[in-house]
Amino acid sequence: MSHLEVLKTYKMYIGGQFPRTESGRFYKIFDKEGDLLANACLGSRKDVREAVKSARGAFGGWSKRSAYNRGQILYRIAEMMESRRSEFEKELGNIGFTKKKAEAEINASIDRLVYYAGWTDKYQQVFGSVNPVASAHFNFSLLEPTGVVGLIAPEESPLLGLSSIVAAAIAGGNTCVVLASEQFPLPSIVFAEVLNTSDVPGGVVNIITGKREELVEHLAGHMDVNALSYTDKLPTEMVTKIDELATENIKRIHKNQIEDWYDEDAESPYFLTQFQETKTTWHPVGF
């Protein structure tokens, strides 16, 4: 019996749902042979706004989860990824990864999630402090998540790069809006399906597909996005534009150029703490 393949519709991931872009626009994604793989959503400004709204809505709950719980959820993402290996292999194969390279990419992504899962209940101990003030006060500094974080995913590392940046942001209690790799957006949607089955509350991670050139400025200029990070070398005009728009609400901009996502420098607690604010609390000591 012949079986006509049922093609998958790739939508975006906003607030725990998989909506199409409100704009109704699409762009074509091709495989390595140049055949049509899928019509991806060409996300719009309004989609970015919806995603930010979802991320803000999810921030209160996610940031107040215990560190232990966040760790378990990140570990759960790794588990779910493990169980969807074949799907990721297929996605990566479609865009030119050899079987071996795809396996390596998936293995590294799983390990990276486990790496950040382990940090959730430790970074506070390494980077927080008790401060020996000279007056009769107890004084301590804790790290708290910056808030809603915009992430411009690396163009050339559609799974490992993506999972690395998402894990570092959410491990510390932030919620995020991700602009997926423009050229290879499909693995990000499979990743979203993993997130959706991993106890990650809706809205904690939102993934928009579309044109970087169009969407970056909506993210950089959004008044309810507290930080923005990217790891690719962006064109100078785009960098300047991002910096300028960021001033509207003193958005924190983090440029971490990462070329090799397998490198040990590509995982670090400092990628987690860059999305943290230090809060210092004072209390008098006395009877």
């Binding site: 003030v133 004084n139 230090t278 210092t280 609390t281 004072w282």
Partner: peptide, 13 residues
């Protein structure tokens, strides 16, 4: 600042 206010110290971020 809890039960105090406007306190400063070089060790305090």
């Amino acid at each position: 600042w809890a039960n105090t206010y406007n306190k400063f110290d070089p060790t305090s971020p």
